[in-house]
Design a protein around this nucleic acid. Structure first.
Lengths: 207, 207, 207, 207
DNA sequence: CATGAATGAGGTTTCATTCAT
DNA sequence: TATGAATGAAACCTCATTCAT
């Protein structure tokens, strides 16, 4: 019969001690394990606590609610993603075509590896929409791609470049998701990645 | 949607009488209405029954469980999809490029129109994997595309053609899904569809 | 993770069949038993269901939430209260002083008999404030007292009469509550009732 | 506030050092602030500790459980109450009628000011019943009133006086509680206080 | 066949209290 | 002694599914 206030999604408490950090880490790892093993359906707070070897109460000490756990996972995912994206696209030793190809390949692989996990995160996606973190992530990715295209196709006007960024992001993440829906042999993933890259490169050059 | 011991997904009973057919239709229509209006969260058996003007018991007479309802929706969706796909791609009065472009455009629009509904179906997707119906649907679509490509690019060898089919399907449905994630103005949808088509056409010609 | 809507307090469903009526009755009786035995603290939905020999689910089929159960009890209480109040005060065979005295006596007794039950209801009182039912009940009581005073003290002006009604209601219900806080022998209850009545009668005559 | 096996209510430890006294005071003040601000619902041990700037552990060092905190508040309330009651009733410069009237007025005002706080304390009232402190408080109040009545109505026999005391206490505290249930303008409080006093005075004189 | 009442496992969240540091 | 992280029982409520009528 308690009065409900506003649901918060940000973390309830910054872990300050070692034990706390350990707990949070354990929870996040347990969450990933559960999502990968049981999918979104098995992702319950009780199960997380059990898998993390922690009590439900402790869980709620660091995450105000279930969504907050997913949100943390998503945030971590985003950060990792942006990092490797940038690392590959910026590497000046290869042609931009090669870098794009490499990025796509790597992206498809990571999608395939963690398919059920991503799927569960996507299920909860409506919760993230428009959070500052989500917007931040979008901007960061757009910046990386924008820089990349500025270098690859310097003659492109800003409007066309903006559209190209949207198309690039959409295509790669879309096909990445789709590809990860079924279990596929590496060769097939490679082939799809190469095809996607070829396709995009040809299209970009024709702009 | 608790874990089940023996999940049955095929319909429990073939409706043989008019009343039964009417009931099944009412249930499916109600389901679509609910999915579109309330999303996957509001999709409960009680609600379906109420919206369809039917008792829960009757609902269970024709659908062994909740997933079966979703499955029927998915099947219907598939059939409709294949139908319009074929209709557009086969139309001999236009160049194959124009037909492909038209198909993609129409597909993106339909995805955007029924976004929440598709999302709900996708949530339950793991259930369909490898059912005879799903396989049937895949085959049907592959046949349509195969015929289309045979006409468009007659010189393509069978291996390349198979790969092209996979890529075509994957790309279009992937981007279609992605595009429908946000509300977009028609002009943007058109642009994305055109870009996708251009990209694919260029790639196909380069094979 | 379900979206919460507006908490309703009115009954979820009008019982239409005999079994349903029986269930609702069983629930209400069980609730009263629990409140009397265990107080407000032991008044949980699970306990109610158990005591009523019913499943939690059934409970929630007829009462949307815990407060609704209390509300029903309160409503019943109110109805009964108004009824006996009117019955005593209207009885033309006795002087108005005697009727007032009788009403107060009877009221104190009933308060004492069901003390823990009333207390639990009072705990939930904030929920009722301003519901149509509560307002209705207030009006009904005010009407009864107004008619009574109009007959007893016909010369009283409307402003004074309104104030007298407020004072009467407040005093009687207040002392009634207080009296019921401790277990008291009937003689003491009688004495307090008589004193209250004398006090009020003297005061009313002096207006 | 789950059922307890051995409810201890007296303080766990007499604070002997300055720091301890300070802590206890801080806790009590914080408790009052919380009760007034958030009502009984927000009155949790964690919140008390936070508001008092103390750790939960320290809280439990001086109060064996939550009820003990409430009990201490109640005790303080009682003491303050008795003090001001005595101060007004003993003041020899006014007639006893004026003093009684003044006392009631002041009492109603204080009830109204701290309504939510009293309500929360009342919720826990069952715990106090029959504790030595409660009995002590009762006696103290009875003594004050007894002295007052001895002066005001010296001819009253002891039995009648005892009954008058009971009636006085009951009536005033009862109506005081009731009055504080709704927010009321000062004028209305004054009127009710005056009426209560008039009523009681007339009744006392008629004994 | 149809109905819809009944079931109860299971999900989320809170909070008094303990205990290792 | 002080701290506050950890605990876990217990509360509320939902909903897929069954079954008596």
């Amino acid at each position: 019969m308690a009065a409900q206030q506003k649901p918060k999604i940000s973390a309830r408490k910054r872990p300050q001690q070692d034990r706390s950090k350990h707990l949070v880490a354990a929870v996040l790892e347990a969450s990933i394990r559960i999502l990968k093993r049981d999918g979104a359906g098995g992702f319950t707070m009780a199960r997380i606590a059990e898998e993390a070897g922690v009590s439900v109460g402790s869980l709620y000490q660091y995450f105000p609610n279930k969504q907050a756990v997913l949100f943390r996972l998503q945030t971590a995912e985003w950060e990792e993603n942006s990092a490797f994206l940038a690392a590959i696209l910026v590497d000046g030793r290869q042609s931009w075509e090669a870098r794009l190809k490499a990025m796509i390949r790597r992206f498809y692989y990571s999608e395939c590896e963690e398919a059920p996990f991503r799927k569960a995160l996507d299920d909860a996606a409506p919760l993230y929409h428009q959070t500052p973190e989500a917007i931040e992530h979008h901007k960061a990715n757009a910046k990386i791609l924008s820089d990349f295209l500025a270098e690859a196709l310097p003659r492109l006007g800003p409007a066309k470049r903006a559209f190209a960024i949207d198309m690039l992001k959409t295509t790669v993440s879309a096909i990445g998701n789709k590809v990860s829906e079924q279990e596929r042999p590496p060769a097939q993933i490679d082939a799809l990645a190469a095809a996607t890259a070829d396709m995009l490169i040809a299209w970009l050059k024709g702009l």
